[in-house]
Design a protein around this nucleic acid. Structure first.
Lengths: 167, 167
DNA sequence: AAGATTACGTTATAACATAACGTTAAAACG
DNA sequence: CGTTTTAACGTTATGTTATAACGTAATCTT
């Protein structure tokens, strides 16, 4: 445990977005320790970048940012492998409709996210809705289908941008 | 109206998947006529291919198929433009988690689809669920968000493949 | 310390998508 | 009916996203 460690209990539910990238990485580190998996340097860097960016990050955007930090050329597989790990562990999600990646506020729950993504400012919001989850699961069951992953993305305009563009 | 035209009323609700690609194209032609838009040759070809394929079609897969049909080289923009049209008109949808395209059984309703996609055999199923739609809309409204498009995709294993792989 | 495993570096290339611009074909209009 | 306008398409080039394959280094296991 490090000085920056954060007790998971401390996070108000669904509100981890209020913490800094550094804190988020520390939180992830604790979980990884507990799970016996390795949050290596590059994985930390990528996770921190995801939290720092206020919009979904493209893989090549992450590469550029990493190169600025380290002054060494970073090849795509490096960053895609880090992303794969972060997604497996629930620390990140891919926004399929954007081919971009966001950090994930609830690494305990896999695939139970709804994302609202603003077409205008690229802001995104992560929601959970157990009822909607249940309903999707029911739909699947009814079709004899065994779900492994769900993608639920709502694209549109966020509250802030609606105010601005009101004509 | 052509011989192959199909009266929309004839389709049992949500069951148009039972008709042939040719019939689907004829149906789309009628709708396009009514809407005053043009279902050109290449658009028809692409729509027919989408219906013929039993899995989501990649754009480059469509290109290859078109080249086999016409013996002329087809460049990507040609097929992407046709797909854009079909999507605009509700005759096709993009499966974002696959970067692939499927024909759409209910061109009247935009963005109100749920897709179940089998990881194993690539079969897909298109569903509608007004209640789930409503719930998603409510979530968005609650966040002050104005949705324009929804992506709901459930990945997993279909009933058929579950039987086969049961170990 | 030796062997096994996991992560990473590196090169190359595959797969997906669009910009830009010229040409053809169809629709609209007087 | 021919001219204008617009929509669709052809073509070339290029941009963007993602992965295969293979070697090296670091870490874990015993």
């Amino acid at each position: 445990m490090t000085e920056e460690s954060i007790n998971p209990e401390v996070f108000p539910e669904n509100n981890r977005g209020d913490y800094s990238a550094v804190q988020q990485v520390a939180y992830a580190r604790d979980i990884c320790d507990a799970r016996g998996v390795r949050l290596t340097h590059i994985r930390q860097q990528v996770l921190a970048l995801l939290w720092e960016n206020k919009h979904p990050s493209g893989a090549y955007e992450l590469i550029e940012a990493l190169e600025l930090q380290g002054a060494r050329p970073i090849a795509p597989p490096t960053v895609y492998r880090a992303l794969d790990f972060l997604i497996e562990q629930g620390f990140a999600c891919k926004i399929e409709s954007r081919n971009a990646f966001v950090p994930c506020a609830s690494p305990e729950r896999f695939n139970e996210h709804i994302f609202l993504i603003c077409d205008d400012c690229e802001a995104w919001l992560e929601l959970e809705d157990p009822q909607l989850e249940q309903q999707l699961a029911d739909e699947a069951t009814h079709a004899g289908f065994k779900p492994s992953r769900r993608v639920v993305e709502v694209l549109g305009t966020c509250a802030k941008c609606l105010l601005t563009q009101e004509v």
